[in-house]
Design a protein around this nucleic acid. Structure first.
Length: 281
DNA sequence: AGCGTCACCCGGACGC
DNA sequence: TGCGTCCGGGTGACGC
């Protein structure tokens, strides 16, 4: 593979990180861990409150659990909730204090019993929050695409209530939570829908196809990551399964038509002009 | 109000 | 080698 895909944590990657921290795959499970302190070489990781205040509040608190909502990791504490968004390049790992610091371990939570929760973030776009009411942030998110409540019928109503290009709409976290650029392109390809189609022009069959493809694509992502959880480089084998993403000019795996790259809503967008016609057949 | 566009933050990768 | 450009998630500004 000539092209190295940078890690871009979307729902499946965040889910994988959440599970591995909860289960303690190569380390102690995070539930019940006490935070002794936090140190950071990049205070701008702390969005609300500031690093100083955050540090004061976090010392001595206990992390009760870890969950995911959209692309956010939630850490309920014995008071307040910590939220972490990994943005472009973030990763969180439970690591023994004695193991050497990684190049991008900008923020480190020092836990009891010789454990660190390390926030590695090459591009420094990640953000940490601490709130009494996490709904202040999470309340803005759209539905979870893998939840039972997210039905094809609901999706149809959601799409019909809007008149937007389908691709940017899928990326809108207040519309639906957790989908990023890669999974949006893959889901649209799998459903045979052009990225510029207007949301309220999708028929019931197309909506059901897109609904199913979103869920399948996200499920597959979680499965693949689950399979590669033991890898040193998490997200490892992932790019091998892309059908369109980053495959400009390469033949579509379904029909051999060259994959095209266009810009949609300022985002690189890959699609098959034949499988995803602008005007539905 | 809803929609589309753009700039911003960063640094790795890549092209010239 | 070294410089310029691209890329992307989320947010906020702006114009229609």
């Amino acid at each position: 593979m000539k092209c190295i895909i940078p890690e871009m944590p979307e729902l499946p990657e965040v889910e994988t990180i959440s599970r591995s921290l909860r289960e303690g795959v190569h380390a102690a499970p995070i539930g019940g861990m006490q935070v002794l302190d936090v140190t950071s070489s990049w205070p701008r990781h702390f969005s609300q409150p500031s690093y100083r205040t955050f540090r004061k509040h976090i010392q001595g608190r206990t992390i009760l659990d870890v969950r995911r909502r959209g692309k956010y990791l939630l850490f309920p504490l014995d008071e307040r909730t910590m939220l972490i968004h990994l943005r472009m390049s973030g990763d969180l790992t439970m690591t023994s204090t004695s193991s050497p610091a990684g190049r991008y371990d900008h923020t480190v939570f020092h836990l009891k019993d010789g454990w660190d929760l390390r926030f590695s973030d090459a591009r420094k776009f990640g953000r940490v929050h601490l709130l009494k009411d996490p709904q202040k942030i999470l309340g803005k998110l759209g539905p979870e695409p893998l939840d039972d409540e997210f039905t094809s019928g609901l999706f149809f109503a959601m799409l019909n209530g809007r008149n937007r290009q389908i691709k940017p709409l899928l990326l809108d976290q207040s519309f639906i939570a957790g989908i990023g650029n890669i999974y949006a392109d893959e889901a649209l390809h799998r459903a045979g829908i052009h990225p510029l189609r207007k949301s309220d022009t999708l028929g019931e069959n197309e909506t059901r196809a897109l609904w199913a493809s979103i869920r399948e694509t996200l499920h597959d992502g979680i499965q693949r990551n689950g399979a590669s959880i033991d890898w040193v480089y998490r997200g490892g084998e992932f790019q091998n399964d892309f059908k369109v993403y980053s495959r400009n000019d390469e033949p579509c795996l379904a029909c051999s038509t060259p994959i095209r790259r266009i810009s949609v809503g300022q985002r690189g967008t890959y699609f098959c002009p034949s499988c995803q016609p602008e005007v539905p057949k």
